[in-house]
Amino acid sequence: MGNVFAWPLFSTPGRLKEHASPFQVIVRKEVGDFVRSWRFYIMLALILLTFVGALYISLENIRQAVTNVNDPDHAFVYLKLLTATDNTLPAFHVLMSFLGPLLGISLGFDAVNAERNNGTLARLIAQPVFRDNLLLAKFYAALLVVGVLFLTLVLLITGGGMLLTGVRPEGTELLRMLAFVILNIVYVGFWLCLSICLSVIFRHAATSALTAIGIWLFFTVFYQIVVNMVMGALVPDPRGLSEAGVISFNNLFLSLLRVAPSQMYSDAATTLLMPSIRSLGPLTMEQMAGAIPAPLSFRESLMIVWPQVTGLIAATTACFALSYYLFMRKEIRS
């Protein structure tokens, strides 16, 4: 079949609306490009490997985890499938906090500058298309692909879990897993936006990719070290501090750490996947007193992670706004 382009993702070409909007047309093309690109295959293989590895480890330990009565979360079989590990391999969400940025960067680092270097951008914006549609379509198409990918993974877990354990998933488990999917999409979306922004700024795809990877490395490796050093210099001898003083410094330390998107992501992911986590900061003995270790409801967990999710969405929006601003003012000439 010669007509590869009319790849039916949402509808067959015959049924396509008489006048698809330019936005839809660009999204269709971008999704088609992503799905057939090598970089996507490579990222897909990496994530599938991670997923299979994490699932394998958790299946090895699932019996132990589910029968461990001391763990308040032991009844959540499906969440345990995502998180149970014997420390030979980190859990899936920990691995995703590394791979997510890579996925986002790989889908966005050449979004604009590759088109400019190929001379297709000048041709594209000479069409009767709003310029912001182009940027939005690129972002949306990549997120669509990422969303479908994560949803598939979670559905695979649920389906596989049902076949292997025979346990029926509970409503709250399903909700938590869906929230986890959304969290993943937002997290990858942040890195996607950042790399699209860099692709607007830098003329060469390699520069923008390296810069994005540099930022990612800074946040995963160096940021903690920097925060530790700064706090070490700031904090006086803890022995001379009151309890309240220690706690306030500790909170400051955690807040600083949470500037890193990966920290926000792991905080939110752990809370969503481990229902018994009730606070992300330190708790005083008074707060702990009388508390029975029991899983929180989905709504309560969501309340705990809300600031993190909001933070990620805000960072994504800021990056997108910046790229929008830069792109709208850019003069495109080849």
Binding site: F5, N118, T120
Partner: peptide, 16 residues
């Protein structure tokens, strides 16, 4: 409008 160094999506055929 045809820009001075006109480019096309190389992974697609002319018709596409």
């Amino acid at each position: 409008y045809m820009p001075d160094s006109v480019g096309f999506y190389d992974n697609m055929t002319a018709l596409e």
